[in-house]
């Protein structure tokens, strides 16, 4: 079924790139995991549970970043009528959605041993859950609105509205009292994570960026081909 949608002629050139990326990702993720799970030290208060950070933080960063991309793509689509960016946004949405879910689940697993609870309704956690629902709505609309033009418009509106949530998530820990601690890595001051923990965090982040790129390239190609096939069917 999938092969029917992926003409090999179009794929052959890009498959090499994807294969190389997969190799690179596996390499980096192995290094990252060994560093994160074995080489990096336990935290002075939290002990070994700090290792959840190496998945939790990159997943959160990427889920916010990808929705930022979706939001910008939505503006480009609605205001400037640049159509292909919508396809890119559509392809990246499920990746961001999964990362938002991973962030929530790992955060919950981390919260129990450190805070003493799985979940609280503080501003950070709640706004992150809202982001997850924005992703779900966005993906749902693409899947269930059959007419492409209509789906393109509706999803873009969701993308733009969801954009407002991003600064709320980012600054929730500064604007309000929350159980969640403030950011350790900021643009304005030195990170409050010790270098032996920052390095594996950055390695894991790069591995997850490459992973996202791979999945994105594959999905994006599929979306392009879908459009082409639809056009062909109409013409016949």
């Amino acid at each position: 079924m999938l092969k029917f949608f992926l003409p090999k002629r179009i794929l052959s050139s890009n498959n090499k790139l994807i294969n190389n990326l997969v190799f690179l990702m596996l390499l980096i993720i192995i290094i990252g995991l060994i560093y994160a799970l074995f080489l990096s030290p336990p935290d002075y208060i939290q002990g070994d549970s700090v290792r959840i950070m190496y998945v939790h933080v990159p997943a959160s960063i990427l889920s916010l970043g990808f929705f930022g991309f979706i939001g910008i793509a939505s503006i480009l689509n609605l205001v400037f009528k640049i159509k292909f960016v919508s396809l890119m946004a559509k392809s990246i949405a499920p990746i961001g959605c999964i990362f938002a879910l991973i962030s929530i689940i790992t955060g919950s697993l981390w919260g129990k041993p450190t805070w003493g609870v799985w979940w609280v309704w503080d501003a950070r956690l709640t706004s992150m859950l809202v982001l997850f629902f924005f992703y779900l709505t966005y993906i749902f609309l693409w899947n269930y609105v059959k007419n492409f033009e209509e789906a393109n418009k509706l999803t873009s509106v969701i993308g733009i509205i969801g954009l407002f949530n991003l600064p709320v998530i980012k600054y929730s820990v500064d604007w309000w009292n929350t159980l969640h601690q403030p950011s350790s890595i900021t643009l304005t001051s030195a990170p409050t994570i010790h270098n032996t923990m920052l390095v594996p965090l950055v390695i894991m982040l790069s591995a997850m960026i490459i992973y996202s790129l791979i999945i994105f390239l594959m999905r994006y190609k599929v979306e392009i081909i879908k459009i082409k096939v639809n056009k062909k069917n109409k013409n016949n």
Partner: peptide
Amino acid sequence: KILAKHDENYMPPEVSE
């Protein structure tokens, strides 16, 4: 109910000592 709140500082035990 008591919840522990931790801060944004992460470091190995030796550094803290």
